[in-house]
């Protein structure tokens, strides 16, 4: 090992080179990204998640949703994310600036969830998620997602029935025995709050000036081809 100093320097250079390129410079450029204030709406975008959705994000992490679901919409013309209704535009770095942990994901065993909050909205969306978590076959026949029934609790009714009971939303074969009710646990509530809140705003003006907008002729093709009923 008479060349130890040379080998050390070489390895140090190789590591420093790639670290500068893919860690340091990127952190510097991400740090410059700021929320964009929209004067017509009087809000800055992207918005922070509300508190219960932020807790739900921890449940999302805890349950390993990221192993089967991505949170990044591909750019128009690259894949068919836009045609599938997974987003109105491709994801950009600014969308993620409020997130300490980013669940980009690398596998789509299930669909992309970056804008799932735009697909399932309000009380109807909440009901959809309740059915889907209780048994994905209720809403998505043939899905290979496991049931997340541990997000629910089946318990006997003591005194009055709970206002939070959800069995009325489930089909007949899932009904609990008489005198029992199914309630959503706090983790389930939080996770659904997160999924309902998960959507990116319209394109920021700064990015609109860059490469993310489809070229005119392909934009025309895209509008023609957008079939909202395929948005699953």
């Amino acid at each position: 090992m008479n060349r130890a100093p040379l080998i050390f320097l070489g390895i140090f250079f190789a590591l420093a080179f790639s670290w500068t390129g893919i860690v340091l410079t990127n952190h510097l450029s991400y740090a410059k990204l700021q929320p964009v204030f929209d004067e017509t709406e009087g809000k800055a975008f992207p918005q922070k998640l509300p508190g219960n959705a932020e807790r739900g994000k921890e449940v999302y992490r805890d349950l390993g949703c990221v192993y089967c679901h991505t949170q990044q919409v591909r750019q128009p013309g690259y894949g068919t994310d836009i045609e599938r209704g997974w987003g109105e535009r491709g994801s950009v770095a600014r969308d993620y600036i409020h997130e300490k942990r980013v669940y980009l994901g690398s596998m789509r065993t299930g669909p992309d969830l970056r804008n799932v909050g735009a697909r399932f909205v309000g009380d109807a969306g909440r009901d959809w998620h309740i059915q889907h978590f209780y048994d994905p076959q209720i809403t998505s026949k043939g899905s290979i997602m496991p049931p997340f029934r541990f997000l629910f609790e089946t318990r006997s009714i003591v005194g009055e029935a709970s206002p939070r009971a959800v069995q009325a939303k489930l089909p007949a074969q899932y009904q609990p025995p008489a005198g029992h009710e199914i309630v959503l646990t706090q983790r389930g509530e939080d996770l659904i709050s997160y999924l309902l809140a998960l959507k990116d705003p319209a394109l920021y003006p700064e990015e609109a000036a860059r490469v993310y907008v489809p070229k005119p002729e392909s934009a025309e093709k895209k509008t023609e081809s957008a079939h909202p009923e395929a948005a699953k």
Binding site: F17, D95, L104
Partner: peptide, 21 residues
Amino acid sequence: AIFYNWAGVHHLIGGPVPVWV
């Protein structure tokens, strides 16, 4: 040693990271 460190970024192709990366 020189090239492999950079190669991991190919898992982010098409993702929300700078195109030059």
